[in-house]
Write a protein that binds this DNA or RNA. Sequence first.
DNA 1: TTGCAATTCAAACAGTTGTATGAAACTATC
DNA 2: GATAGTTTCATACAACTGTTTGAATTGCAA
Lengths: 221, 221
Amino acid sequence: MASDHTRSAILAAAERLYADRGFGDVTLRDIVAEANVNLAAVNYHFGSKDELIAELFVTRSIATNRERLRELKAAEEQGGGRAPIEVILRALVGPTLRGCLGPQNQRSTAARFMIRASIESVPPIRRIKNREIDHLRKFAGAMRRALPERSEVDIYWGLNFALAMAHHTIRESERLTKLSEGKCDLDDVEDVVARVVSVATMALTAGKVEAKPRALARDAR
Amino acid sequence: MASDHTRSAILAAAERLYADRGFGDVTLRDIVAEANVNLAAVNYHFGSKDELIAELFVTRSIATNRERLRELKAAEEQGGGRAPIEVILRALVGPTLRGCLGPQNQRSTAARFMIRASIESVPPIRRIKNREIDHLRKFAGAMRRALPERSEVDIYWGLNFALAMAHHTIRESERLTKLSEGKCDLDDVEDVVARVVSVATMALTAGKVEAKPRALARDAR
DNA sequence: TTGCAATTCAAACAGTTGTATGAAACTATC
DNA sequence: GATAGTTTCATACAACTGTTTGAATTGCAA
């Protein structure tokens, strides 16, 4: 029902503006101007500015999460309930990286929006991210099944580090490019995925984390 | 000259409030109320709100960077111009982690402020962070000297991943605690440092990153 | 003490923000 | 084609923001 036209025009304009200029300096007035609709339309259709942002983020976010789970489920089914750790990690970080990196000039608005969201972190988005724990638990479960001999703590640390490398690389992609003077090619997404997965796998499978090698620190002093 | 009292009262109050409630909802009026000074004092002593935030961040930031370089220099001198990679990495991530983690109830205001700064990322702080590249280059140089047979690209990726693990762990420490139901002990800072250093070292020293193991992805489909 | 600069203060300013209102325009159903 | 419900619109609102102003006060030197 209803033409829906105004609603989606707002969503599109907001995503574009937020992606380009960040949440900080885009006002509702900017958005309605870009969308060619009336100022009051935002509150009419979304209730508030925060709910608009939340809807934008949730839409993209569940798309990524669905893809993640799809890959995970496929892998576990093929392996009879147990998937190789590399494949699990690839399902965890692949969709996010693919959704946010890739050749700059062909990055979708959605991708650029998600990068913004991971850099700026405004309240409505932070609230949503906090609800992501249940989703991550599914990966923790799969990882435990893949590495039953590994301690739970190590599993969680491995999961944490995998997400760390993926998200940080997205957040700081510009800086890494500058620091490496272009030598790190962030457009080759599959190479980035491979690197993250490879390191995370090592973290999770390497011989037991040796008991706190503090000796090293002492040597350094 | 001058009593300086007002100035430091503002700095202290601002750091406390920002640490507790974030940059988003702390106004100049909140700060001057907490500091028991006049509203105009902020602009008089700092020029603007952004400059106040910048000074707060810069102070803590150069303290950390100095500590990093001190550790790095000590290590390289002891090794005759070449330090073990673990020690370099420890110098890179140790000071930051020690400055931000540790038992919650004994975290300094400064530590809590820096955590905020790494979570919320406001414009004045982002501007400063962007100038950190020269500082990181020094570590990249040391790492190249430590691993001369390694390609530059791999060095930069290793550096990136080390910072990723450290910063993400700080940013998301609450979530990791919740996800792991307290099993990951973020109060044991030296253990966290050891884990990050250990994984980053593996990333940098493991046999050449095998040429894009895309086969794995294909298997998973 | 006098004079001068540095500091503090209350008050106002200027601008922006997200949101609410109530009338107008539209749409579809009977 | 009247009616009821939805959507759009111009406009106003109310609150809050960082910043400025100019007068008062303070501190220090001559």
